[in-house]
Design a protein around this nucleic acid. Sequence first.
DNA 1: TCTGGCACTCGCGCACCGTGAGTGCCAGGG
DNA 2: CCCTGGCACTCACGGTGCGCGAGTGCCAGA
Lengths: 338, 338
Amino acid sequence: MLSERRLEVLRAIVQDYVGTEEPVGSKALTERHNLGVSPATVRNDMAALEDEGFIAQPHTSAGRIPTDKGYRLFVDKLAGVKPMTGPERRAIQNFLEGAVDLDDVVARTVRLLAQLTRQVAVVQYPSLTRSTVRHVELLSLAPARLMLVLITDTGRVEQRMVDCPAPFGESSLADLRARLNSRVAGRRFSDVPSLVEDLAEAFEAEDRGTVSTVLSTLLETLVEENEERLMIGGTANLTRFGHDFPLVIRPVLEALEEQVVLLKLLGEAKDPGVTVRIGHENAHEGLNSTSVVSVGYGSGGEAVAKLGVVGPTRMDYPGTMGAVRAVARYVGQILAES
Amino acid sequence: MLSERRLEVLRAIVQDYVGTEEPVGSKALTERHNLGVSPATVRNDMAALEDEGFIAQPHTSAGRIPTDKGYRLFVDKLAGVKPMTGPERRAIQNFLEGAVDLDDVVARTVRLLAQLTRQVAVVQYPSLTRSTVRHVELLSLAPARLMLVLITDTGRVEQRMVDCPAPFGESSLADLRARLNSRVAGRRFSDVPSLVEDLAEAFEAEDRGTVSTVLSTLLETLVEENEERLMIGGTANLTRFGHDFPLVIRPVLEALEEQVVLLKLLGEAKDPGVTVRIGHENAHEGLNSTSVVSVGYGSGGEAVAKLGVVGPTRMDYPGTMGAVRAVARYVGQILAES
DNA sequence: TCTGGCACTCGCGCACCGTGAGTGCCAGGG
DNA sequence: CCCTGGCACTCACGGTGCGCGAGTGCCAGA
């Protein structure tokens, strides 16, 4: 096992490298942190850390930089989560409180996260299946054309067109609307399929086709693949990535455009607290030189979706984790109020 | 005025430069285009074009590159719009037809435009004020809390919370909903303010406060500033911008994050056809080295919103204009069908 | 186990230079 | 008058060579 001092050396290396973006050498280290030992000793420690795979040299006769494994150790054992200061908390709250609807909440959250962390922010909309039904609305647009509108307790609204197999009267429509709502309003979306299963049976034969079309459209919106949405922002922060720009930034931007990739990325994090995935821990190749810091948020105790940031592996983990956690907490509050 | 041949030289310079991304010299020009004259003559023409400000030298003893003014002349006088090929048209149509709702239409359009033009795509949601009201829905969430949902003929759905000054009964709600819809359904949103002006008067004194709160919330959603939404994509294409990366790309990404800037950008284009704004013609400083190609789209004859792309001034104008125009046409069709 | 000393490595920045594409100008010819 | 071939000049670019210095590994001694 690594001695206390060696861990201290690793911590110092991570901190310095994150600050300066330059490989850090033994002399510079002893000057900026009082480790109480000489550079030569630090050199031995560094050699040991390198043997263990926690740090590496970009080339001989250069300083060391942390490896993914080094950052992992730093995050797990050496660093906490830096809490936000009072003024920061207030600023977050103020900024989020002006939102007029869910889109606005998400948009503001993205901007806020991007600004606080100076990284790329990703915010997932509250998942339908993990939310509660507030109301289901059915509108008649044409004799054989309906619009289905779902509204969740988190303020999310989804709409779908329904082409009916047969004309559907106003009274049948009112009937269906009433029955639907009495069954599902206030219930969790994940329970909806079983709750509406036998609904068609209550209708006249001529209407049953339409009713089951409506129901299957309703169920389709709940399929995992379709129902997830997200918003990203702060991509301009990618320009602070490093010097060897195009090659690094390109795949990152491409990955960010693939919602599927991002959803997987956020979805993988099962930890109830803040999750950090570092460099190669990310399955997607384009994100091998980035770290993802994410956390679930929700109006109650339970998480209805995730949010997080994507940045260079060389990032300020304690600060980023603190910001992400704080923002998630306040977003949860805002959603609970609306 | 410039002679025919000099215009031809300019066209050749633009074409070559767009293709190679490198300053083009007199010798290379005569080799690749049969202008029927010698390099020396071309040199004289180039000198003249430079005097007029259509081309410039990055440094002495390098070839010439077109200036913004040069591209402007090229777009206005020397190049047409390159129509899409049959297979391309079919691909566009297929790709857009799978969309399930408006968000999906917009998202697909963005992806499509980004792929076709290999540039950054921007698509504005159909403007509320230029659309027609399909339905206004009012839901009671709590005794003194309503949700207002607006649905347009283009499939756009907006929702707002309304905190009522006093409890509002189910029957009053049904009454208000019916009256509202009978007045505004099928009418243009821009006419809504005058159509609902005196609606509160029809209600009992105790309900008037709530009714006017609902109405003012309704009117607020129509304020220009709030009602515009847009989606962007294809930012990864910015990496193909040039060599001097960070400095150019940074302000562009920043500008793209400012919805206000983009909306202004699209809004400025008044031309009914494809509009091109080149380099410094764009008011926003960060976009001085980009060109914006935009066009209005709509379900009927009239434009309900704009879409377009943002790319380097050195872009394939005829091709880009053709793609933008074609996509707008098909999006209009899709919207008309839904 | 830590420390100071020492020889060694090697990337970085800088100066230097040859090459070649490109230019402007000019005198001569159609 | 316009076009052409010729000519001298300019200057960015790429390659080479070199000194500096930060950083390293190793070792002997405290």
